[in-house]
Design a protein around this nucleic acid. Sequence first.
DNA 1: CTTATTTTCGTTTGCGCACACGGAACTGTC
DNA 2: GACAGTTCCGTGTGCGCAAACGAAAATAAG
Lengths: 353, 353
Amino acid sequence: MNKKIRIKDIAEMAQVSVGTVDRVIHNRGEVAEDSYKKIMAILEKTGYKPNLLARTLGSNKTFRIAALMPNPAQDEYWEQSAEGVKQAEDEWTQYGVEIRPYHFDLYNKASFASQAQNLLETPPDAVLTAPIFHQEALNFFRTCGEQNIPFVVVNNTIEEGGSLSFIGHDLNQSGRLGAELLHLSNTQPGTYAILHVYDDVHNSLHLNEKEKGFKEYFAEQNGGGFKVISRDLNHTHEPSLEKELNDLLSDASLRGILVTTSKGAFIVSRLIEKKGKNGVRFVAYDLLKENLHYLENGIIDFLINQNSKRQAFIAISQLANHLLFKKDALPTYLFPLEIISRQNLKSYLHTGR
Amino acid sequence: MNKKIRIKDIAEMAQVSVGTVDRVIHNRGEVAEDSYKKIMAILEKTGYKPNLLARTLGSNKTFRIAALMPNPAQDEYWEQSAEGVKQAEDEWTQYGVEIRPYHFDLYNKASFASQAQNLLETPPDAVLTAPIFHQEALNFFRTCGEQNIPFVVVNNTIEEGGSLSFIGHDLNQSGRLGAELLHLSNTQPGTYAILHVYDDVHNSLHLNEKEKGFKEYFAEQNGGGFKVISRDLNHTHEPSLEKELNDLLSDASLRGILVTTSKGAFIVSRLIEKKGKNGVRFVAYDLLKENLHYLENGIIDFLINQNSKRQAFIAISQLANHLLFKKDALPTYLFPLEIISRQNLKSYLHTGR
DNA sequence: CTTATTTTCGTTTGCGCACACGGAACTGTC
DNA sequence: GACAGTTCCGTGTGCGCAAACGAAAATAAG
């Protein structure tokens, strides 16, 4: 691994000019058979690595990345995500990467489609998106594919993707983890509930994965004898939600509750607080401000951190690396499933990034 | 926040030449009061950010960072740390950063001192170290200070440091977390043990912090009635260790054990496995191979991940940023206290970095 | 054998910055 | 007023690469 071989060096060895070497490196033709082979051989032998600094400096391009994400004003989870995008922007603007956000309405499929349309009118060099709406996302991905626009996906996968990379969690494992945290040293059999609390529309595929993991975990526990119940709760109609929840809580055999949506956490927390929490373990998702409050006062026992901020940050970085340095991203980048308790919470809030 | 302001632009605005602007940016004097102020003002106002690519390309320097760390062959924890260093090297070599490791014997103070001596003979531009040996480290830091060599410290702080940055954990909080994980829903009072298992020498200051946090946690729990015991165990004399441990385990009121050293984890695990684990919760540190084994088979309930690999990676990155880009590091960079269970383990092993 | 066309290649410029060099303008000295 | 010493500042070159430009060589066309 010799160091510091420049194009110039290659040129000298091959007895040609730098221009010629450059042409074969970017194989844009106009090079004689002979020279081509000769240069290729030397390129191989020396293991030439271009100086990426000089490369991106020299090719004075500027790349545009579009971020098609939910409106951050609608949801703190997506607000954090937007922060991640901004953070990545700070890091990459100096390299000539420009990020344009396109926000769609989290509760409106049509808005996703129309923003996607918007986006494609001035096609960016790459795209980041959270495919909340399955069908609409598929359509969008298809056109991206046709137009050769690389894209990465956060939050939840879409199988038929064609994406450069998926960045997020193993949702099945996530459900299992939730189950484990509820089960922990509750040796007696009992009932465990998994609740999907959502607004108008929701991403059922996404939540199903968690539920599957949750159920698998309890099925695997020796002895069995666990009762697992699952509920879909629409929180826009609060009274019925409250009733449903009260029924649940009055079941004496109930040992634990997992709420799969980040917003659901504090909605359920409120009700639990009202009713009193008697020995039921409660686990939920994400470090939203309200959730932290309920973690601190003991209503929530554990939070699983999905770290939407970092997801977005990494996603943009992958795209930037792809565009600038031609480094390809891992097809799936799974985040650690971070367990947050009262005692390690601070250590997650302080960290620089 | 307009982007793409070059030195040339600044120069035009200030009606001077690029050379002058350059001089104030690197404040190496030879600039009249007037011009200086004028340029500084514009620098502020425009929020000028130098193009790091061009900068490192132009100043064709190469920096040397020395890593004074324990011999990775002696301990898996430090092996992981060395991997972090290597990873950082991969990332930074292209920017002209060169990393030279100096390994000292983990069980031999003199070796630390002599390697430190070695290192200083061809003084590097910056230093990373793990100050395992208090007094020796202090001496070393003093000379670094005298020679103006910036250094960062991982693993454990040294108060009187003078280091650019400390990278590691809040050890008090770490002890508290260990306590919480043991205590979790063990509502009845009982006994909780904190064990320091070490080799010949050990870093008592380091471990004391954890113990303090551990005790604080239990003191704060309402009801109280917890008995906390602490033991220093030298594992080089195995029979006596085993006896001590057996005594402990036969205490019927024992509810949980926290082992504070990464190696101690599997040593204690073996003995617990032999004796049988009856309801006692067991929490330990770090993702060493053997520890993972005992986590998977249920001897260990939780591991707290100190992530020595990432500590080293971040440490080198901070130094590189400091040298190349003059970004100063945070004086202390505390890592999240990661809780590892059977169910989220995989998600920590897979991640790219 | 010209003239036109294509293939092949060397040269040059610019990217944004660091830094060396040397030149003005100013100050002081005798 | 001639000379040396300061202080301040502009210009030029190089970092390694990309890419435009245009020249030479090879080939085709007339």
